Simulated assay, not measured.
Amino acid sequence: MERIAGGSDSPARSPPPVHPLVAPLEYLLGKWRGEGEGGYPTINSFSYGEELVFSHSGKPVISYSQKTWKLASGEPMHAESGYWRPRPDGSIDVVIAQSTGLVEVQKGSYDAENKIVTLKSELVGNASKVKDITRVFTVTNGELSYVVQMATQLTSLQPHLKALLKKL
């Protein structure tokens, strides 16, 4: 019996087949790493390293996890995880829990041909200041880019984060 590297007693398994509802977003599956920039009218600008992982279990859902770190020191900055549930009509439901305690429930759409996912918050929970969040993910020439915009009680929807990642 073949074993997974690292001494595990679990047998090595090939990934399950991609569920038909996940198939249009199969291009996202895997590990992505790169760098990003952040800022907002109420904070200083900053740069960060980032890793995103999109995975599946054969069910009609994509697991999502993200972590960032300071480029200079490698010190952890932010983490979030959740689930993306694509629908047959090109819509998508997303839930994300952030390490800060903030939770997002987002709805959006995907364009499989142009490799674009657009999300807008329906609910931002456990946030004293954040009112609205939008996210747009695009894959072009094998690179994943995204832009996050945010609105608070004091500001309208404004750019907050942007990054460019390469698949590992």
Rank of each mutant, 00 (worst) to 15 (best):
L25R: 03
E26K: 10
R33F: 05
E35H: 09
G36I: 00
G36T: 01
G39Q: 00
G39I: 03
P41A: 04
P41F: 00
S47H: 08
L52I: 10
V53W: 04
V53N: 04
V53Q: 06
S55W: 09
S57W: 06
G58S: 07
K59N: 14
I62L: 09
I62Y: 04
S63M: 13
S63W: 07
S65T: 14
Q66H: 11
T68S: 15
W69E: 02
M77F: 03
H78Y: 03
H78I: 00
W84L: 14
P88M: 08
D89P: 12
G90V: 04
S91N: 07
I92L: 11
I92R: 02
V94D: 00
A97C: 13
A97W: 07
T100F: 00
G101N: 05
G101A: 02
G101I: 02
G101H: 03
G101K: 05
E104W: 12
V105I: 07
G108V: 06
Y110H: 14
V117M: 13
V117G: 10
L119Y: 09
L119V: 05
L123R: 10
N126H: 11
N126A: 12
N126L: 12
S128C: 13
V130H: 03
K131Q: 15
I133V: 15
I133G: 06
T134L: 07
R135A: 13
R135V: 10
V136R: 10
V139H: 04
T140C: 14
